[in-house]
Design a protein around this nucleic acid. Structure first.
Lengths: 248, 248
DNA sequence: CGGCCCGTTGACATGAATCAACGCACGTGG
DNA sequence: CCACGTGCGTTGATTCATGTCAACGGGCCG
């Protein structure tokens, strides 16, 4: 039987926040319905970014914050030598743009991995809402904290884990994100090519490919290019936590 | 001649924010003097943390935010396998505690590297100030953005750079932080032992030690345990940016 | 239909980790 | 104030994980 996993939810029209299936992840999360109406009118909905186009680029002025409605976005940092580090893959319900709060200019770039729809909250409207709605301020700190926590976990992954642990950790996080969005936690399609994933995980593409193959040989996952099926969640979990030499 | 670098500024009494030498880095940065007075009364000053004591620990309830007045703090994350990743070293003027905004509980621990003094802004007072002072909200986002940007750079460092590049990058960042604080950018004392620095930079202690030795042999820096003197800033910069194989 | 990019696999090179030993600072207690 | 012990930092020998180089097949898009 052929697997045909749901890649993402398709939202093509400009639904209201209160009717949006993502409202539990997104900014409206902690708002009452009256508060949500204020948010509603402050947001410009359904900004379209085609695959490979940029939502914003490094050093550009911060225009606002963006909630992803459908599709997916990668954020990445470049340095003087032209090396890039992918900082995160962002799925529907995620917010991006916080990286510009330090200087008012973005310190990283955001590029669409697929055709993507985002809601935009301009920085002026953002400030106005923070002024009016305590719940909104609170929710914003919540979202910022989420970003920080994510970044910390990536640091732990890159700094301490072996390559296999890193991939296992990544697959589990994707799985969890899907479960939270009521998608399958065991069958999904990756939005990014191997090159991007390898970069994010701090390893060579070949190494990543070998680990995929090894996990498949061991019956832990099934891999068909970007379509992943987790067969043995428990073993995958143990791989993600296996320290240096205390497990085999 | 023996180098005796300033380790940190010693502030022993509870000075007012407006008289504090750190007010340009710390929360008061963007505030008018009337606003600063409101901040002033919301802060409990001079909380003392002895060397090796914790300011907060992972999973503990968020009590507030902390501005470092003197001394130094390391923050670190632990995983299920007991591996630790040091997330940052925080110097006077830095704010810590944002990591708890996601869940209300800290996702990392903060431990003093030296005897340390901090100002504490309780979470209730924080919310109250955000309500009253737009400038304070703005400044808070600024500080949060700083943390995010720092984390991004660490990701780039851990994910893309060779060990030597990582150390060079770190030394330059310390140098810059010192310059910003009107200390020497070429002579300073590291607050952390080799073990912590190696962990932060994602390498073995022995590797770190070897790189220190090599940089010294090449006349780029002078190393006497934790006392560092940068002799050739330009070369150090080039090492920090040297990509894969285009420089030697 | 054809070219190109994506992903995989193999052979090999190498940077960094590990294991081991040692000397020196520093704090502690006599 | 000195002696001692302990932990910090360094260095050497060796192993190992991962990167690099190379080749290839297969899917996708023009």
């Amino acid at each position: 039987m052929q697997i045909k996993p749901v890649k993402q939810n398709k939202i093509t029209s400009a639904v209201a926040c209160k009717n949006c299936s993502l409202s539990n992840f997104c900014l409206p999360r902690g708002l009452s319905s009256s508060e949500m109406e204020l948010l509603e009118v402050s947001i410009s909905k359904s900004k379209k970014i085609k695959k490979r186009e940029y939502l914003y680029t490094s050093n550009s002025e911060q225009a606002g914050l963006y909630a992803i409605k459908s599709g997916s976005i990668k954020t990445f940092l470049s340095n003087e030598s032209g090396e890039e580090q992918i900082l995160g893959f962002h799925l529907p319900g995620d917010l991006v743009g916080f990286d510009a709060f330090y200087t008012g200019k973005h310190n990283c770039s955001a590029q669409a991995l697929d055709d993507t729809l985002v809601c935009e909250l301009s920085i002026n409207n953002f400030e106005a809402l923070c002024e009016k709605l305590p719940a909104m301020r609170h929710e914003m700190m919540h979202q910022v904290g989420k970003e920080i926590q994510h970044d910390h976990i990536v640091m732990l992954t890159l700094g301490q884990m072996q390559t296999e642990e890193r991939l296992a950790t990544f697959l589990l996080s994707i799985s969890q994100r899907n479960v939270a969005r009521h998608f399958s936690g065991t069958e999904f399609q990756l939005a990014m090519p191997r090159r991007d994933l390898a970069n994010y995980l701090g390893m060579a593409v070949e190494t990543l490919s070998r680990i995929f193959s090894r996990l498949q040989e061991n019956g832990i996952i099934e891999v068909k290019r970007r379509v992943i099926r987790i067969l043995d969640l428990e073993t995958l979990r143990s791989l993600a936590h296996s320290s240096c030499r205390d497990s085999e």
